[in-house]
């Protein structure tokens, strides 16, 4: 695997980790008996993401990293649907799609 591919893989991993961190924090509000555990799990996941993202930035351009970072919106939508049972209506899905396009557009100029 070359350096750029490794960087891209790290960014996708970061998006997945961020998705899971957000699910952990949402779970903290739904399971008060284990609130601190879920908050700590989310914070640890974010700490890991910061480290991996820093490594990713050494391998890919920031404009690519910036745009691909918005994949976390997709990860959050997917995990919140699968793990929490949130309803992703077509309107919410369309909105997410436009946000992704907008971020990609801005990232292209970064």
């Amino acid at each position: 695997m070359n350096r750029t591919a490794f960087g891209l893989l790290l960014i996708v991993t970061c998006a997945v980790i961020e998705g899971l961190a957000q699910i952990a924090w949402k779970t903290s509000s739904r399971k008060p008996e284990h609130k601190h555990f879920w908050i700590a799990a989310g914070a640890l996941a974010y700490g890991l993401e910061i480290i991996l993202y820093t490594f990713a930035l050494t391998a890919v351009d920031v404009s690519i990293a910036f745009a691909m970072g918005s994949l976390s919106f997709v990860a959050v939508a997917l995990f919140s649907r699968l793990l929490l049972g949130e309803r992703i209506s077509w309107l919410r899905g369309a909105g997410l799609g436009l946000i992704l396009c907008g971020v990609a557009f801005m990232g292209e100029q970064a």
């Binding site: 909105g95 801005m106 100029q109």
Partner: peptide, 27 residues
């Protein structure tokens, strides 16, 4: 703040407006 960046901002704005029209708490 280039015109292309402003275009990206507009897409984000419309996307957020669509999301904001959905129910905020389905759980």
């Amino acid at each position: 703040v280039t015109p292309a960046r402003l275009g990206g901002m507009l897409l984000i704005l419309v996307g957020v407006a669509l999301v904001a029209r959905t129910d905020h708490n389905t759980l």
